[in-house]
């Protein structure tokens, strides 16, 4: 099968010495749900941001849609970016704009400025936006301002916005790192369901191994800017996990910064409650 996105020898050097990525080569195929795991500082975020050129790689090739992403600029880059949806840790919604308009931002690249200025989006786009919002359970919130939503709701709006781009690939950079365990479960479940339904390739950065094993069809482990594991969830043994997180073991299960205030028992209960919710 032809890969959808092919990455060869990707490297990123910050400043003079700091090698965040150290020669990464990976092929991604249609319909895969890839979870990239690794301790913080391993280069996960840099890797995912290089793909849509939010970060410019120092070396290497990225072939997507028969184009070399690393060589594009200006209008061509924007065109390819519109085929790649992205979901962020901090949601990055426009807070004072309402929910449906935030979702419609996914179609800005296909809408001329004078039309988007006056909210003249295509009727089919608007209809799809509403359908997506219904699907993630936010139909009550359609006309609320984005900054009036909870974190979990904001991230679901973020998912809708990315899906409305009708992308071929979805990139998600720590989509649940700022969420409580309950919301994290809902968000991961919906991201997984929607990308399965639309047969999208999804590349998700996570540092929670349990979530990775639960949802991924393929897991990639990154450590110090190199791929140290690439396989199915069943192939990811505890020994390999230990090796990936060597020296940073505490991050394997750590949900997010906020949850570190709970003690272990609390966290277990919350996670259990999250599982019970589904």
């Amino acid at each position: 099968m032809e890969p959808l996105l092919s990455i060869k020898n990707l490297a990123k050097v910050y400043g003079k010495e700091t090698r965040a990525l150290n020669g990464i080569s990976l092929d991604f195929y249609p319909g895969e749900f890839i979870v990239v795991i690794g301790p913080s500082g391993a280069g996960k975020s840099t890797f995912i941001r290089c793909i849509n050129r939010l970060v410019d790689p120092t070396e290497g090739e990225m072939i997507f849609d028969n184009q070399h992403l690393e060589k594009l600029s200006g209008k061509k880059l924007r065109k390819e970016r519109s085929k790649i949806g992205m979901i962020f840790q901090h949601y990055n919604l426009v807070g004072r704009t309402n929910v449906i308009k935030n979702v419609l931002h996914g179609q800005l690249s296909n809408t001329p400025l004078y039309k988007s200025m006056f909210g003249l989006y295509r009727e089919e786009d608007k209809r799809e936006a509403v359908e997506l919002l219904k699907k993630v359970g936010l139909e009550e919130q359609i006309y609320k301002r984005a900054d009036a939503l909870s974190g979990g709701q904001m991230q679901r709006v973020g998912i809708c916005r990315a899906i409305l781009q009708r992308p071929k690939v979805i990139l998600a950079d720590e989509p649940i790192a700022s969420l409580d365990p309950l919301s994290a479960n809902i968000v991961m479940q919906q991201l997984h369901d929607i990308s399965c339904e639309k047969n999208l390739t999804c590349i998700v950065n996570l540092h929670q191994v349990d979530f990775a094993k639960k949802y991924a069809s393929r897991i990639v482990g990154i450590k110090k800017g190199r791929v140290v594991f690439d396989g199915t969830p069943t192939e990811l043994t505890d020994e390999i996990v230990k090796e990936i997180y060597e020296g940073k073991e505490s991050q394997m299960t750590l949900q997010n910064d906020a949850s570190s205030i709970f003690d272990k028992q609390d966290r277990k209960e919350l996670v259990a409650a999250g599982h019970g919710y589904e």
Binding site: E80, N92, Q165
Partner: peptide, 15 residues
Amino acid sequence: DKLEALKANGSSYFQ
């Protein structure tokens, strides 16, 4: 950072 989302989905400068 907030504007990254619009940058990443191919919106133009004026958008």
